[in-house]
Nucleic acid binder design. Structure first.
Length: 327
DNA sequence: GCGACAG
DNA sequence: ATCTTGTCGC
């Protein structure tokens, strides 16, 4: 059972998590009408409304047959393809060191359950919006959405039945992370898979706390140990048109290494592209791909930073009743 | 006032 | 996100 892999968090990333205020106010603090609002504050208020509107279209349940049946490897050929999970997508964006605008976006489709790449779309994109914590989607979602829409047009037969997104789903200050945003805009099931815990609510006052093994109410996501080689967990939350249970099931089936294959491949390919940019002429925007792959360089990233030995006493795994933040 | 903050 | 080698362990 994958739930056995869930473990209580004693890592530093989790320490900063705080309890959500019961009287949830807008997370964007409006200054008292003394100083004029900064550009960032204006953006936050505008984007917060947008998130709220889009969130109404979000669906947190399994809507497709494959997600209800969860037919696995051995019987996959005995059923009509419509009932099976066959195509899993992954998206990721990589950046150049000193460039805030130009980045490389990758969208891949893997065949399931073999997890082999059958489609890839990697290209440079322009990211104009700034990155503001809690509003990642406004920086990245358009580039990703375009690639998905492109596939809808040129080869809808291999359109992924679910897309894994690097970033959070409902595990988000306002319950609407990048995975949700992308899901609603593309009308595809999405799953958020983050490599770091995003604090849903900052510690407001001394004494504020958050039970990781929850108390009541809504479950925002799970902390998931994806493989035995790494104690460093990932953070899974449903994005759109998928249930918590199915989201975990999909991620589990996509694990070769710590990061599920769809997003891992998207990450590898976009980095590779950026790298070939640097090796090539700096003025040329269209570099020719070099087939040179650094087998060892990749491998390093696969097993990220092991947990410090002092924090390794986490034999306390969470049970199936895991709750996270209340909403 | 300062640090933290998915990617 | 990005800057970065070797190294320890199964």
């Amino acid at each position: 059972m994958f739930f056995r892999h869930l473990f209580s968090v004693v890592r530093k990333t989790a320490v900063c998590v705080a309890m959500e205020a019961s009287n949830a106010t807008a997370s964007v603090e409006c200054k008292t009408h003394n100083s004029p609002p900064s550009v960032e504050e204006v953006l936050k208020m505008k984007w917060e409304r947008e998130q709220k509107d889009l969130k109404e279209k979000m669906l947190l349940m399994d809507v497709d047959d494959w997600s209800k049946l969860k037919i696995t490897t051995d019987v996959v050929n005995k059923f009509p393809q419509k009932l099976c999970l066959r195509y899993v997508g992954g998206v990721d964006i990589s950046f150049i060191k000193g460039d805030d605008v130009n980045a490389c976006a990758a969208f891949v489709v893997l065949e399931f359950p073999e997890l082999k790449i059958i489609y890839k779309d990697i290209s440079m994109v322009q990211l104009t919006a700034p990155y503001i914590p809690g509003f990642l989607a406004f920086r990245e979602v358009n580039s990703l959405k375009e690639k998905i829409e492109k596939l809808k047009n040129i080869q809808p037969s291999i359109l992924p039945q679910v897309v894994l997104v690097d970033g959070n789903g409902i595990l988000h200050p306002r319950g609407f992370g990048l995975a949700c945003h992308l899901g609603v805009l593309t009308d595809l099931p999405t799953i958020g898979v983050a490599k770091n815990l995003f604090c849903v609510k900052k510690l407001q006052d001394a004494g504020d706390w958050l039970p990781l093994i929850g108390i009541s109410g809504k479950q925002h996501g799970v902390i998931y140990r994806s493989c035995k080689e790494s104690t460093n967990p990932i953070y899974i939350s449903p994005g759109h048109k998928i249930s918590m249970e199915t989201a975990i099931w999909v991620v589990e089936k996509c694990i070769n290494y710590r990061i599920p294959e769809p997003t891992r491949q998207a990450d590898i390919l976009s980095r590779e592209y950026i790298r070939s940019l640097c090796n090539k002429g700096e003025s040329d925007k269209k570099p020719s791909h070099k087939k040179k792959k650094r087998e060892r360089g990749q491998k390093r990233n696969e097993f990220d930073n092991p947990m410090p030995s002092e924090t390794c006493e986490d034999e306390s795994y969470l049970g199936p009743g895991l709750d996270l933040w209340d909403s």
